[in-house]
């Protein structure tokens, strides 16, 4: 029987195995060990949710706590990546990209191309994103579309523990800057995770569920919302094919086009805001490249165009749910030829 582990354990294990394999891999970030300079326990935190806990005990000073100076340490990770290390820097919440974005998008993202192909920047920025923890407007955003927009960055959004481990190992071995986005509501999710190290290639979407009536293309936590909706719709005689992007950059256009060619109907589901997100991007791509396969209009299901609200009543309304997906799928069925 396969071993099960949580999303969080899978990430920790990927980091540990890559640190074991390659001593140029280092981990840095605020409280990634914790307790630095105090009278109490060292490795007191392992990050605010304990994701990196235990790495300090195994790898000592290769697990580096930082001051709250994101521009400096994210930039230092980028610089170190150009000079022989493979840093995995933790930007605690994706929302904090605001205080260090230059080092990511004007520096790391540009080197390879701007320097005429001579630079390699094997840096990984791990960061948590997404709503659901009542963490309000500055700790809950889905900002992966912002990174996806920028040439030179690879953007990864694992939906399962299995993918989290395999994609993180790939991210660390990759020679380009990778933004590794972890959905904070998935950390406790369990699933099969092989104990040995394995890498999953970027740009290969995963068909999570097969079906011939409607394709639901989605990513991250929304994969589970889509699956829930698909299970319910199956009872009504509608079979959905659920496609998990896994990486938004590179994005697997072929798999998206194939599923649309098969079903002729498309719902795109994205937890990000409705303008310039993955849903709009995929809808546009499908219209351009598979218009003739479509039997009717595409439907998008996204969060609303508002900051993430604090109150639980509002946040629950904010996050796209299975009912919204079912409604969209039915609408697509009805409006198609």
């Amino acid at each position: 029987m396969a071993r099960t582990a949580t999303y969080q354990q899978a990430i920790n294990e990927a980091l540990a195995q890559e640190m074991e394999r390659d001593e140029t891999v280092i981990v840095m970030g605020e409280d990634v060990a914790g307790g630095l300079g105090t009278d109490g326990e060292r490795d007191a935190w392992g990050g605010p949710l304990g994701i990196t806990k235990g790495l300090y005990g195994k790898y000592g000073d290769r697990v580096m706590d930082t001051p709250i100076s994101e521009s400096a340490f994210i930039g230092a990770a980028v610089g170190a990546a150009t000079a022989g290390l493979r840093p995995v820097a933790e930007l605690m919440f994706i929302d904090f990209m605001g205080v260090c974005f230059d080092q990511i998008f004007n520096q790391a993202a540009k080197f390879r191309y701007m320097f005429g192909g001579k630079a390699e920047t094997p840096v990984v920025i791990r960061t948590m994103y997404g709503a659901g923890l009542r963490a309000a407007a500055q700790h809950s955003q889905c900002l992966y579309p912002v990174f996806t927009h920028i040439p030179g960055l690879k953007v990864v959004t694992p939906a399962t523990p299995y993918d989290a481990k395999g994609l993180l190992i790939q991210a660390i071995r990759d020679n380009d800057p990778v933004i590794f986005c972890e959905h904070k509501a998935l950390y406790t999710l369990e699933g099969d995770v092989p104990e040995e190290p394995y890498a999953l290639p970027f740009g290969e979407a995963n068909i999570v569920r097969e079906g011939d009536d409607v394709s639901i293309v989605t990513l991250g936590r929304m994969v589970h919302v889509a699956t829930e909706a698909a299970d319910a719709l199956s009872g009504d005689g509608i079979e959905c094919e659920v496609v998990d992007l896994r990486t938004t950059s590179p994005m697997d256009e072929d798999t998206i086009l194939e599923t649309v060619e098969n079903t002729g109907r498309l719902v795109v589901l994205d937890e990000a805001h409705p303008r310039c997100n993955m849903a709009t991007d995929i809808a546009a791509m499908v219209c351009e490249k598979a218009f003739d396969s479509l039997k009717g209009p595409i439907k998008q299901v996204t969060a609303p165009h508002t900051p993430v609200p604090f109150a639980d009543t509002l946040e629950d309304l904010y996050i796209p749910d299975a009912a919204a997906v079912q409604k969209a799928v039915k609408a697509v069925m009805e409006s198609s030829k």
């Binding site: 929302d95 009542r134 963490a135 309000a136 407007a137 500055q138 700790h139 900051p307 609200p309 604090f310 109150a311 639980d312 009543t313 509002l314």
Partner: peptide
């Protein structure tokens, strides 16, 4: 997270503000 909270329940502990009082906001 109540409707009659200082920020109508939209901000929460980390974002309490009252601009009339010169309180520009807690900050996340």
């Amino acid at each position: 997270g109540r409707r009659d909270g200082l920020c109508a329940g939209k901000g929460g502990s980390m974002h309490i503000a009252d601009l009339d009082k010169g309180m520009m906001g807690a900050n996340g």
